[in-house]
Computed example of a mutant assay.
Amino acid sequence: MTAIDAFRQLALSLPEMVEQPHFEKPSFRVAKKIVATLDVPNQRVCLKLSESDQDLFSIFDKTVIYPVPNQWGKQGWTFLDLRKVPEETLRDALTAAYREVAPKRLAQLVQPDSEN
C-alpha cells in the first residue's frame, strides 16, 4: 500500500469523513469543513491544526512537518511529507486536525492515542 492509499484509508476511517474534490486536489471533510487536502504528485498532505498542535508536531522535524509558508500557515494549515512521516505521527496529526475541525459530537468520538 502506498503512503497516499494509507492516508486515504486512515482519513476515511474517521466518523463522517468524506472525500471531495477541492480545485485540483482531493480534500477530506467532516460537516462540509476541510480537515485535509492531498497533494498526490508531491506525496504531501495539508492538515488544519490548531496553532498549538502545529507547533507541537513541527518539533518532530521541520523538513517533514511544517506550517504552510504564508497566511494559511499562520491559521494552522500544516504540510506533512507522506514519504517521511512515521505512520503513528501521521495518525496523531490527522486525529488532532479532525478534532480541531469536526463538530463537538464527532470530535468526542475520536480520542488522541494518549487517551485510549
Rank of each mutant, 00 (worst) to 15 (best):
M17P: 01
L82Q: 06
R44D: 04
A102G: 05
A93Q: 05
T37V: 15
A31E: 09
P103L: 09
A3P: 01
L47N: 08
V18N: 02
N42H: 11
E19Q: 14
S52E: 15
D81C: 06
M1H: 15
P112N: 03
S58I: 04
D61H: 08
V18I: 13
D81E: 10
P15E: 04
Q9I: 09
F60W: 11
V68R: 07
P41W: 10
L47Q: 06
Q108P: 00
T89A: 09
N116C: 00
L90Y: 05
E87Y: 12
D81I: 06
N42L: 08
A36H: 08
E100Y: 09
L109C: 00
V64R: 04
K48F: 07
N42Y: 06
D61R: 07
R29K: 14
V30L: 08
V110T: 03
F7Y: 08
P26Q: 11
A3L: 04
S114N: 08
K25Q: 15
T63R: 11
A3R: 15
K74F: 10
S50W: 12
I65Q: 05
V30Y: 02
D39H: 14
P112I: 07
V64G: 04
A93M: 12
E16G: 03
S50H: 12
V45E: 13
P41K: 11
L14I: 06
Q9L: 14
T2M: 12
V85L: 08
S52K: 14
F7D: 04
A3Q: 15
S27M: 06
P41V: 07
E87P: 03
A97N: 00
I34R: 00
K104Q: 15
M1N: 11
A11Y: 07
L47S: 10
F60G: 01
K25T: 11
R44Q: 15
K104S: 12
P26W: 07
A3M: 09
V40H: 08
D39M: 14
T89H: 10
A36I: 09
W77E: 06
A11W: 10
L14K: 03
Q43I: 06
K84F: 03
M17Q: 02
A107H: 02
P15S: 02
L80F: 14
E88N: 10
V110N: 01
D81S: 10
E100K: 13
F23N: 12
L56C: 02
R105Q: 13
A6P: 01
T78E: 04
L90K: 01
L10M: 15
K32S: 14
P15K: 00
D55P: 01
A102I: 05
G73R: 11
P26V: 10
Q108A: 08
W72M: 15
N70Y: 11
K62V: 02
R29W: 01
A96N: 04
V35D: 03
Q75K: 15
K33Y: 03
I4H: 12
E100M: 13
L90C: 03
